[in-house]
């Protein structure tokens, strides 16, 4: 029952979510598909789900939603094991159930006047970039997304030689995620590890090569979106600032309630009224990069 005076009410769902599939990848990386139909209906690129990994570890873990299929009632997340909770989640099998709470948070808001969306994802920051790419694909707008993904672990996706030309980078940097390739979304990969067909360096190095290839009128159509480790996000914010581009970043912080109740996940944000502590869970997780990385 909706309350017009309180539109926030009843927008996040507790679901007893069945594990539909779990794909294990090198480096303790997992792609988990959950039956979570209410969450799938309302999820947007940048939103996340707060998952209880095990009854013996009752605090939930915030995981970015990578894909959501409202018709089929599932969501997909990608995670890397960093502690006991996600270790436990990684041992789930199809048919097991976990409590999911979502979707949570304000997602990415791409500006239609800047259709050249540059998606920069690093490691477990890749999922919201995939969600945003799929969202743009299904949108009527004239979007021309380019995805630049980086990882120091083997990418937890099928990689493919891209059929989508990228004249701005050396011909041997030719790999893209198979998923993006299927969707016709241009993409290139970066890694210091030097996986075949990837750019040997940081995602920002690869992104800079792209941005430097654009003339001023093309640059005026670029908007940057990013998710990944904080040092990477700071570098992305600095790169965007250097090219005079708007940039939205999705942040990560230790989290308890994830519905705005505890302020445990608050980070310093510059607002029009001065510095403020904003909750990553419901005020974010997506913020204007210039307002969270003021030095950028």
């Amino acid at each position: 029952m909706s309350d017009p005076a309180r539109p926030h009410r009843g927008t996040i769902f507790v679901e007893d979510a069945e594990v539909l599939s779990i794909d294990r990848h090198p480096g303790g990386q997992f792609i988990l598909r959950l039956r979570s139909p209410k969450c799938a209906t309302r999820a947007t690129a940048g939103s996340f789900v707060h998952v209880q990994c095990d009854h013996t570890i009752p605090m939930r873990r915030p995981l970015s939603i990578m894909r959501a299929n409202a018709d089929e009632g599932w969501i997909e997340v990608l995670f890397k094991v960093v502690g006991e909770g996600l270790f436990s989640l990684g041992h789930k099998e199809p048919g097991d159930r976990v409590s999911s709470l979502g979707p949570i948070g304000k997602g990415f808001r791409p500006d239609a006047k800047r259709p050249r969306t540059l998606l920069i994802g690093g490691g477990v920051g890749i999922p919201p970039m995939i969600f945003l790419a799929e969202t743009l694909l299904n949108d009527a707008g004239n979007w021309q997304p380019l995805a630049i993904m980086g990882s120091e672990l083997p990418f937890p996706f099928e990689l493919r030689r891209s059929a989508i030309a990228a004249g701005w980078i050396d011909a041997d940097v030719d790999r893209n995620l198979g998923l993006l390739e299927d969707w016709g979304v241009a993409g290139r990969l970066a890694s210091l590890t030097g996986f075949p067909g990837t750019y040997r360096g940081y995602v920002t190095g690869l992104a800079e090569r792209y941005l430097a290839s654009l003339d001023d009128s093309a640059l005026a159509e670029v908007e940057v979106f990013s998710c990944g480790p904080t040092p990477m996000l700071k570098a992305v914010a600095a790169l965007a600032a250097r090219f005079g581009l708007p940039c939205q970043v999705s942040l990560e912080e230790y989290m308890a309630c994830a519905v705005g109740g505890c302020a445990g996940c608050a980070v310093l944000v510059q607002t029009d009224e001065g510095p403020a502590m904003k909750r990553v869970c419901v005020d974010g997780p997506v913020f204007d990069a210039a307002r969270v990385f003021a030095a950028a």
Binding site: R6, H8, R9, G10, T11, I12, F13, V14, K38, L101, C257, V259, G260, G261, C262, A263, V282
Partner: peptide, 15 residues
């Protein structure tokens, strides 16, 4: 106090 913000936060959760 400290768990439920200023009274409306948890009403985001359906149910």
């Amino acid at each position: 106090s400290g768990c439920v913000g200023f009274g409306e936060e948890y009403t985001r959760v359906e149910g």
